[in-house]
C-alpha cells in the first residue's frame, strides 16, 4: 500500500465500511423519514427502519469486499429483491422511473452528512476520499435497484407473453386419433416452441396418429417459420405420428418458391378440409354423402 495512512485510517473503502457499521441505526432512522421508505412502509415506521438497516448491512458487506463499484457484488444479493419491491411499489404509485431514481438519490445526503460529522478533524484529502467512495457506493446501489426493477419487469412481461401464447394455441380433436392446431399470427421462436410442445403433448394425450398444423392465419412464411414447421413434423414422426401442414395460401406458396424454401418431405394440403380428407383416407374412413348410393372417400 502506498504511504497514504492518515493516523488510524485504512483505505477509504474500509473506512466507509466501519462508518456504516458504526452508524447503522442512525442511517436507518434518517432513511425512514425519506420519501422512498415513508411511502413504501406506510403502516409501521419500525419496519422502514428495519428495511433501512438491511440495506446498510448490505452496503457495509460490499465495502468490506472492496467492491463498491460492482453491482453484482455478493453483498447486494440479500437486499436486491426488497429494493426491487420498493421501486416497484413507487412505480405502481404512479412515479416515473426518473422520479424513483431521484428518490433513491435522496438517500445519499443524510448518509453523507453523518459521515462528515464523523470526520471533523480528518485531513481534507481523507474526507474527500471517503465522501467519494460513499458516493460511488450509493451510485452502485441505484444501479442495482434499476437493474433489478428492469429485469423484474421483463420477467413479468415474459411470463404474461408465455401465458398468452398458451391460450392462443388451441388443440382441436377432429376425429378419433386426429388433432389439429390452427395457427393465427406471427410465428417467432417463443411461439413456435409453445406450438410444438402443445401439439406433441396432444398427440400423446389423444394417442393421435395424425396431427394437422393449419397455417391459414399465419401472414408470412420465411425460412425460420419453414424450419420450425419441419422441426415439428420431424418430432411428431419420431413419436410415431404423422403431421400434415395445411393452409398454405397461393400467395404464401409463391413467396416460398421465390425464397427457395422447401418443406422437404412434409405432407402439405391447401386447406384444413383437404388435410382432414387426406387423413381420413389414410385411416380408411369412408364419408357417406346423404342420398348417394355408395361410400365416397375424399
Amino acid at each position: 500500500m502506498p504511504e497514504q495512512a492518515h493516523g488510524t485510517a485504512g483505505s477509504p473503502t474500509l473506512e466507509i465500511r466501519d462508518f456504516l457499521r458504526r452508524r447503522r441505526e442512525q442511517i436507518a432512522q434518517r432513511w425512514a423519514d425519506e420519501p422512498l421508505f415513508r411511502a413504501v412502509f406506510t403502516v409501521s415506521r419500525d419496519e422502514a427502519v428495519e428495511a433501512g438497516k438491511a440495506v446498510v448491512d448490505a452496503l457495509a458487506q460490499v465495502a468490506d469486499a472492496e467492491r463498491v463499484e460492482d453491482p453484482d457484488a455478493a453483498g447486494f444479493t440479500a437486499v436486491r429483491e426488497q429494493l426491487a419491491r420498493m421501486a416497484a411499489a413507487r412505480s405502481r404509485a404512479g412515479l416515473s422511473s426518473a422520479q424513483v431514481s431521484a428518490e433513491l438519490a435522496a438517500l445519499r445526503p443524510p448518509v453523507e452528512n453523518l459521515l462528515l460529522e464523523d470526520l471533523p478533524d480528518a485531513p481534507a484529502e481523507q474526507v474527500r476520499a471517503c465522501a467519494g467512495t460513499l458516493g460511488v457506493l450509493m451510485g452502485t446501489l441505484r444501479v442495482v435497484v434499476t437493474q433489478t426493477a428492469l429485469s423484474e419487469g421483463q420477467a413479468l412481461i415474459d411470463r404474461q407473453r408465455l401465458q398468452l401464447l398458451e391460450v392462443a394455441t388451441p388443440v382441436i380433436k377432429l376425429w378419433d386419433g386426429v388433432v389439429a392446431v390452427p395457427l393465427i399470427g406471427t410465428l417467432d421462436s417463443a411461439r413456435s416452441q409453445v406450438v410444438m410442445e402443445t401439439l406433441l403433448e396432444s398427440i400423446v394425450e389423444q394417442q393421435a396418429r395424425f396431427a394437422i398444423l393449419d397455417i391459414t392465419g399465419v401472414p408470412t412464411v420465411d425460412s425460420l417459420v419453414a424450419q420450425h414447421l419441419m422441426k415439428t413434423v420431424a418430432a411428431a414422426r419420431l413419436m410415431g405420428a404423422e403431421c400434415i401442414v395445411s393452409g398454405i395460401r397461393p400467395a404464401i406458396a409463391q413467396t416460398m418458391v421465390h425464397l427457395g424454401l422447401d418443406l422437404g418431405n412434409v405432407v402439405t394440403r391447401a386447406s384444413l378440409a383437404d388435410a382432414l380428407g387426406y387423413v381420413l383416407h389414410e385411416l380408411g374412413v369412408g364419408i357417406v354423402t346423404p342420398g348417394a348410393k355408395g361410400a365416397v372417400t375424399r
Binding site: M196, E197, L200, E201, I203, V204, K231, A234, A235, A236, L238, M239, G240
Partner: peptide
C-alpha cells in the same frame, strides 16, 4: 419399430 418416444425427447433429438 421404435415406440412411445416422449415429446421432450423428440424435440431434443430434432434440435
Amino acid at each position: 419399430v421404435v415406440v412411445g418416444m416422449r415429446p421432450a425427447v423428440a424435440i431434443t433429438l430434432v434440435e
